[in-house]
Design a protein around this nucleic acid. Structure first.
Lengths: 361, 361
DNA sequence: GTATTTGATGAGAGCGCTAACATCCCTACC
DNA sequence: GGTAGGGATGTTAGCGCTCTCATCAAATAC
């Protein structure tokens, strides 16, 4: 019964009496066309328009093209809020990202976004600026209070883990760069393998024991790299000097380098990421220790710049983009109801450059 | 007209009669409590619950606390889709970001996210992976087909500009790191000032004309830096050698360095970003040109690593976080209907390190 | 003491869309 | 030729929330 609009210019007469009025603010602006407008314009039912928009098969071609023409004509675009409300599907994934511009996490975020886009999904981001449990919990809450269909948590730091496992069981979620924990699948680069590759490569140079500049304790990646480094040394029957713990920054690498430059038998150093390796290079060379002649240095990450450090850095390449891609894949499978493996490990590779082997030239 | 519900386990008694039945898929899962459930539980009307949730002033304290208790008890959380549909407000900002992990754009994205979060807004990201007009247009369309209330476009590359100006006039939007163009306000770091600071600093070293390794042509920042550099040289009455055009990567800086190492009077070089400066440093020093003794180098960005280059890099610091913050501020003002200035320029600062001045020590 | 304002609450409609069901019409089959 | 089957379309009822307006009580004014 009775229309209830007639608010827009150009649809005056004939639109019935019980206007009922819209209550949304900004009435003055022309209300965008709704599915009903399209239906009226095309002379079909509301439902038919919906079918066309959603690519439902059973619509005759003639009808379909008429509707499409109407859509084009009116400039109709479906209202995602209405769609989400009616269907329960928002086509949006939530991502808990890091508030810092670290190479790995930032790349992962981009990888996830790209993959989500490829699957027709939107990405809503909540960045965590402090790595305490509280902040992570809040970010998670922020996102789940959105209508996200699934959640990807970039969680290389330990405090994220238990928070993630507090997610309602059955809610589609994936942890990227995190601990295999409880019921949430995990996608990550194989840190142990990477550290192993780095350490073994240094060992193979015959420079004796390998020193380690580690990442911060509360990062899982740091822990795994340290453990693997330690494991390799133990297997080789070598002394395991306690690692120098940095904080991922070049500065902390520099400080570690100041210390290590004074250690005569520190002739092979594995830094847990590239920026720390950079700081290390600076400190060592400022103190007259030549790289790679006196000391060999390996990093981790293969940031685009590391090939142009002085000297170019041997490092472990992580394919973050791929990690993001796999993470979205895992989410999609959960949304589709297909079972997924518990953990996906992405193998890193060693990139050998001049910080460990003297120039050929 | 017959019921069509009662399919779910466990939503039998207690949930009242006018349950309203869901038709969404996944019925088996318990439907989350709605505002109606809370209202019933608290013995108030639906509307009162809404008022409590939205902090409407005219609710008695007693009522409010009763409702809050019910909310707590039932674990109620407002459904954002329904809210967006009914109110027209989604509390979400769209951000057109870059699909690449460049320091500036990535930092800006984080800055925007942080600021949006502080304003209680969500951020939906669409990354652009190719910088052609087509991709940008698509990203824009993706976001506007979402229910975003406003749009921030990180647009340091030129193709973004005209696309942005195709936005419906009056739609809240802001361009970050872009051209002042038409009706969309712009927030950006003052590139000209930054390049000026860099060039003048080099000039002050008394090393004669300043060479420039520029960013790619299709980047506005690159253009502005090149122009400003040129301007300073002209004012000083010096020769303006054509800039070597790079692509922001350390590799391109390295290649530029290979060329410039052969130019005897290239004793002062301004690189348009830090990674290119890094490549430059490597190439120069590989060829025996000492920095800063033989050649002085200035970068642009002040990435966290540049302080640990070999030698530490003199560079121009851009406060991207602040840019993001201001951008969100501008959006908020538009949403509030307050007028905003057309362009906000954020001044950069010069950070002097050893790549231009010999070590004091 | 009655009229008026103010504050607190409730009722009802509607936001734009989709799911389920109901029709309708055309073809296929015996 | 009648009936079953199936594709195309229409009808209806929500999804969960907010808006406007109405109501009613308490507080204030005259």
């Amino acid at each position: 019964m009775a229309e209830r609009r007639a608010t827009t210019t150009g649809m005056l007469a004939g639109t019935g009496s019980t206007n009922g009025g819209t209550h949304a603010p900004g009435r003055t602006a022309e209300r965008p066309p709704s599915i009903a407008d399209v239906a009226r314009f095309a002379g079909v039912s509301l439902q038919t328009v919906s079918r066309v928009v959603n690519d439902h098969p059973s619509v005759r071609d003639i009808t379909r093209s008429r509707v499409l023409a109407a859509i084009e004509q009116l400039g109709y675009r479906p209202n995602p809020a209405a769609r989400a409300l009616a269907s329960g599907r928002s086509k949006t994934l939530g991502v808990v990202a890091l508030g810092t511009n670290y190479y790995g996490p930032a790349s992962t975020l981009l990888g996830i976004e790209a993959a989500a886009q490829a699957h027709g999904y939107f990405v809503s981001v909540a960045a965590v600026h402090n790595l305490d449990r509280q902040s992570v919990r809040q970010a998670l809450r922020r996102l789940t209070s959105q209508s996200v269909e699934g959640l990807a948590v970039i969680a290389p730091y330990t405090s994220a883990h238990e928070v993630v496992s507090s997610l309602p069981r059955g809610f589609p979620a994936v942890v990227v760069e995190g601990n295999p924990n409880g019921h949430v699948p995990v996608v990550s680069v194989d840190q142990a393998l990477g550290a192993r590759l780095a350490t073994e490569h240094l060992l193979a140079q015959g420079r004796g024991e390998v020193f380690h500049v580690a990442g911060p304790d509360n990062w899982l990646d740091a822990q795994l790299r340290t453990e693997a480094w330690m494991g390799v040394l133990r297997e080789a029957g070598l002394t395991v000097n306690p690692p120098i713990v940095g904080d991922w920054t070049a500065r902390s690498g520099y400080e570690a380098g100041q210390l290590l430059a004074q250690v005569p038998n520190a002739r092979a150093i594995f830094a847990a990421n590239d920026p720390m390796a950079l700081g290390l290079l600076l400190a060592l060379q400022e103190r007259g220790r030549r790289v790679p002649d006196d000391v060999a240095v390996v990093g981790f990450d293969d940031t685009p710049e590391s090939a142009f450090f002085l000297p170019p850095l041997t490092t472990v390449r992580q394919d973050f983009e791929r990690a993001g891609q796999v993470a979205v894949q895992v989410l999609m499978e959960q949304l589709a109801g297909t079972g997924t493996p518990d953990q996906q490990l992405i193998p890193p590779t060693l990139v050998v450059r001049q910080s460990t082997v003297p120039t050929a030239s």
